[in-house]
Amino acid sequence: MIKDITLGQYFPGDSFIHKLDPRFKLIFTVFVLVEIFLCKNFLSLGLIFLFSIACGLISKISFKVIMKGLKMIYLLIFFTSALQIFYNKTGTPIEIFGGKITTGGIFTAIFMAVRIISLIFVSSLLTYTTSPTALTDGLERLLSPLKKLHIPVDTLAMMMTIALRFIPTLIEEIYKIMNAQKARGADLENGNIIKRAKALVPIFIPLFVNSFRRAYELAFAMECRCYNGSNRRTRMKKMHTGWRDIVALCVVLLILAAIILLNHFFGAVI
């Protein structure tokens, strides 16, 4: 299951979305997330949902990959929707399996599900199409005004890059340790929750110890390559704001206008 974590994974490409300035891409993503929350009826939500799908198509990232990322939150979507069905008592009542639910409940449930899927879809598209370095660089530049408040933005960005870099390495290591412990007779799959939680201790202790050693070696290697957290660092990849960013900005703004209009002229579901 841990292997399904696609957080921070990046799929190189040269699509329109890949080529957007990471700073703008970050802003756009936040913008679209807000837009998703602004939607009040199926028309506006449908619009933004289609927009996310379109972005997915433009980015040329396979839908299989995106669906895999959604797998982690199927349960969340299911429960949120199920709760809506039972709590929302507006609309025409329908009787199913001896229980009473309402059309209003079903609509809200669908609405919530689509909303969560769109949210995840858009935000994962950001990490799928932006290399973590570009992402952290973009974040660093966006936050650079904070440097005036003596917040070490560049150091924080470097920490984020390293964290993202080591996620797959550490996941691999967890599997290795788990197999090593299983080979020594550790039982990780049976027993109640407490027993299984206890069985994790011999997995996490070696993981922590190794992580410290890794950190130590990494620090040496970074020092060897003249890293000292100073400001004189330059970047190989300059960030260019181009026509693509302006086009994207227009699209995002148009969608905002459309959502406001649709919200205004058609009834609200929520």
Partner: peptide
């Protein structure tokens, strides 16, 4: 594993000169 800093090969190679 413990000396590669970035998540993309060319970005890691660029780390030294960037510094």
């Amino acid at each position: 594993d413990n000396q590669i800093v970035a998540t993309i090969v060319e970005e890691d190679v660029a780390f030294g000169p960037e510094n």
